[in-house]
């Protein structure tokens, strides 16, 4: 019996050894020379293969950087440190890349948003609520409060605050954009970290409806659009900031009746 086991182990081991040897020889003979820069670039990347850059993983990103198809600053997770490392390897100057952070453009929390007369019982994920009945709140555009973005965040940089809205912890965020994809209502957008003025609403309802569904919605009065020389445009009863033409001094912040267009310094909270 013992002999049998020994023979079996020796046979399989021997076979494995022979094949391993053959493959090692084949590897030597058939090795494809590729640009060593690709491996070096790959080395300095975070290696999380998150796909935040739009490629199939860190290796794919390196191939494209070396081929010159994508800028050295293309890795949103590694941020500026990685960009500088990659740029040094590629022998070019690292243009300072702007860190992008997610911003939650809804302030209809549990107190401000008007609830439906009926209660929602069901799976407590935003994607389910968005498909089944739209959750507890009347607003068809706002945050559902199911924390899909918190679940989606691979870096624990999102939390639900006590009012039922998600918050970004800027220090932990890597800007991978997973929360943006997770939100069925598209209220999360990526913005440069130093941007402070936002319209914190996505409601396209007419003035009367939007007033009824939420106390802090953009009703679409258009006063900010009229005063801002094209810095704010109205899109179907919703003020949208055009950051290209936008001039902060022209925005009449105090004229907005729901204070939904406002300046918020994110680094202080």
């Amino acid at each position: 019996m013992e002999l049998e086991i020994l023979i079996a182990v020796a046979t399989m081991g021997g076979l494995g050894f022979i094949f391993a040897g053959a493959l090692a020889v084949a590897d030597k003979k058939l090795r494809v020379e590729e640009n060593p820069l690709i491996a070096q670039v790959n080395e300095v990347l975070p290696g999380a293969n998150c796909g935040g850059c739009g490629y199939a993983g860190c290796y794919d990103f390196s191939v494209n950087v070396v081929a010159g198809k994508t800028p050295v600053t293309g890795c949103p997770v590694g941020g500026q440190d990685t960009a500088i490392d990659v740029a040094t390897l590629m022998g070019i100057d690292a243009s300072t890349s702007v860190r992008m952070l997610p911003r939650i453009l809804c302030c209809g929390d549990n107190e401000e948003a008007v609830k439906k007369m009926t209660s929602y019982y069901g799976p407590l994920s935003c994607s389910a609520m968005a498909q089944i009945s739209g959750g507890d709140k009347l607003c068809l555009y706002g945050c559902l409060g199911g924390a899909d973005c918190v679940v989606a965040c691979p870096f624990d940089a999102m939390v639900m605050n006590e009012h039922g809205l998600p918050e970004v912890i800027d220090e932990l965020c890597t800007g991978c954009g997973m929360c943006v994809k997770a939100c069925p209502r598209n209220i999360i957008e990526m913005h440069p970290e130093d941007r402070e003025v936002f319209v914190f609403c996505k409601n396209h309802d007419d003035p009367k409806t939007s007033k009824n569904v939420c106390h802090v919605s953009c009703m679409g009065c258009g006063i900010c659009a009229r005063k801002s020389d094209g810095g704010v445009v109205m899109d179907n009863y919703l003020a949208v900031i055009d950051y290209e033409k936008f001039d902060e001094t022209k925005i009449p912040f105090d004229k907005c009746s729901t204070k939904v267009i406002r300046k918020q310094n994110f680094s202080k909270n």
């Binding site: 053959a22 493959l23 084949a26 590897d27 058939l30 090795r31 494809v32």
Partner: peptide
């Protein structure tokens, strides 16, 4: 298969 993969890549 490993071998064939190397071969085709080459």
């Amino acid at each position: 298969v490993q071998f064939v993969e190397m071969f085709i890549k080459k």
